[in-house]
Nucleic acid binder design. Structure first.
Lengths: 149, 149
DNA sequence: GACATATTGAAAATCTTTTTCATTAAGTAT
DNA sequence: ATACTTAATGAAAAAGATTTTCAATATGTC
């Protein structure tokens, strides 16, 4: 297999292996999108991913970005994140655990970590509704420190 | 004031009073959108609101639906709800408190009530981040009882 | 290295939402 | 009631995001 660009990122490798396992081809466009997603520390819109990924694959089309995002989120390697402005951002699953602080003034989105255990909240709901809860999305809306002035 | 259509709904009346108080005109198109939102028990997409509201105002344009939704959500009488499919739904604020159970199989959205107090969760976050939290959106993703089979 | 076909990029189509602008109608004064 | 002022409306066009179509390309395999 020809080495296309530097791909020392183990997160990228892991997803590539999974794609291969499922019979998908490991193409240059897919690698480029994956590379961008795995090296990013925040969530990106498809257009932004397109711009960045062309560093690795200059012929990359926006359509392929959409298709790759759809594929990857189907496999839960990336996750689609709702944004206030109505369009979507994508982030690798580790990042997109669904905990956000969103400022209603400057619209910045801050991730906040360390809140994986919502079982106190979720357990009673599962009992009452019969729903099997697999994941959660929690967004807190308000004012960031800078916009409170 | 001429009675345009049956408007015994006190929720509608309350919002109309608020619109009036702020100097907005109580137009037939606005009444029709409001009527639909306040009689609905789930969240509706703008297109769906348009269809239903034309029962009350046959000349109603979709553009006005969008404008009215924007006005009403600015006043927090209705709230925009993110949907899996990428577009938005709107529901009166009581309904749209941001607590949803979403089934990944049949995509039904179930509201669950009675969870207004997330202060145990929110207080420490406010302390750590300096963020002022005004509202929250909590979505639980999983499988509804019917789709677990 | 050649082959079968999954994948791609470009263009066009779709769908949601916003903007523009001439027309209409709500609220107020007459 | 009638006239007046201007906020609000509807239609068309524009703008944006996303999907579909399809001929060309490149991957993994033989």
């Amino acid at each position: 297999m020809k080495k296309i660009f530097n791909m020392s990122n183990p997160k990228v490798e892991r997803v590539l292996a999974d794609l291969k396992r499922l019979g998908y081809r490991l193409t240059r466009p897919r690698r480029s999108v994956l590379q961008v997603l795995m090296e990013a520390d925040d969530c990106l819109r498809p257009e932004e991913i397109h711009v960045r990924a062309r560093r690795y694959c200059p012929t990359l089309g926006l359509v392929t970005v959409y298709r790759t995002l759809s594929l990857l989120s189907g496999m839960d390697h990336v996750r689609r994140v709702h944004r206030e402005d109505g369009c979507h951002g994508y982030a690798r699953t580790e990042l997109a655990h669904g905990h956000h602080l969103i400022c209603r003034d400057c619209h910045q989105v801050i991730e906040f970590p360390g809140l994986d255990d919502l079982s106190l909240l979720i357990d009673p709901i599962e009992r009452e509704t019969g729903f099997l809860v697999e994941d959660h999305l929690l967004e807190l809306l308000g004012l960031c420190p800078a916009c409170q002035g």
